[in-house]
């Protein structure tokens, strides 16, 4: 199954993988809120522990999770530097030229780093690494279904999203195939001037569009042949069900958030104002 490898989904057999995707979306939102609740050294320590626990529960290799942080390193470094140099406080650590570094600034920078880190890895482990794109769309459709009362075409959006997700790997594969076929005829995509390089994409783009359009027509035909007519009255193959373990997980997340708020009042080392 090459298709599933699209996106970040990392197949494994873990508690988190098996949770109801709707609960996972809610938990992710809660977790994001939690990262912003933290204000003290103790609460951040617990937040870091929670990241470690989540990674362990999800059975995803640490190396894979850390990979998702890499593209954000520049942003993290940038906010870190800004925080260190532009915060003011009472406890002056160093002073040189026009810069003054305060202890508060250092703490704020560290907190900001931990917050972004927890945000990225937490949402990754809770949602994108452990949920297939298809489950994700199903869950979104289910969570947004109250909007149907306001005549928002939730089903259509969800169907469009799942078709798109379904065909991204297909189109990627197709692009690769077409590129290979044209390379076999001596096409060169990497050298020459900008205009030449743009021109060299024509032998890829035209076959790609042709096949994408044909594919869309075929798909529409195939759906109509099976009497597809929108979401009304349609039943599902995989019905999402909320089990006790899902409720427990959600409650744990709420307890975790409340706990973090209480830890903010522990006056240990440093508490953000």
């Amino acid at each position: 199954m090459k298709g599933i490898s699209f996106g970040q989904y990392y197949p494994a057999d873990s508690v988190i993988h098996r949770l109801d995707p709707r609960i996972k979306i809610i938990m992710t939102i809660l977790y994001i809120i939690c990262t912003f609740l933290c204000k003290s050294v103790t609460s951040f320590a617990v937040l870091v522990l929670s990241v470690i626990a989540l990674i362990m529960f999800s059975r995803i290799p640490v190396r894979v999770v850390l990979r998702s942080v890499r593209p954000l390193l520049i942003i993290i470094a940038f906010t870190f530097v800004i925080n260190i140099f532009w915060s003011t406080g009472e406890q002056l650590l160093v002073e040189f030229w026009i810069f003054r570094i305060y202890a508060e600034g250092v703490w704020n920078a560290v907190f900001m780093f931990l917050r972004i880190f927890a945000l990225v890895t937490g949402t990754g482990v809770l949602l994108t690494y452990t949920t297939t794109p298809m489950d994700l769309t199903d869950a979104l459709e289910s969570l947004l279904s109250p909007l149907k009362k306001l005549h928002v075409p939730v089903h259509v959006f969800a169907m469009m999203m799942s078709i798109t997700l379904r065909f991204i790997p297909t189109l990627t594969e197709e692009t690769e195939k077409i590129m290979n076929a044209q390379k076999a005829r001596g096409a060169d995509f990497t050298s020459g001037s900008l205009i030449r390089r743009a021109k060299s994409l024509i032998p890829i783009l035209i076959p790609l569009f042709v096949s994408a359009i044909n594919r869309a027509l075929e798909l529409a035909n195939a759906m109509e042949c099976r009497c597809y007519h929108g979401g009304d009255g349609r039943t599902r193959l995989n019905v999402l069900k909320c089990h006790t373990k899902d409720m427990v997980a959600a409650i744990l997340m709420i307890v975790f958030g409340v706990g973090l708020v209480f830890l903010n009042f522990v006056p240990f080392i440093y508490v953000m104002k």
């Binding site: 077409i178 005829r185 001596g186 032998p203």
Partner: peptide
Amino acid sequence: LVMQYPEYQLFEETVFRDIAFGPRN
């Protein structure tokens, strides 16, 4: 190399120009 189901590689306006793609390269 002629790949599997190679007809998707056609892109030119005419058959002549498409066959000429390789030699032109």
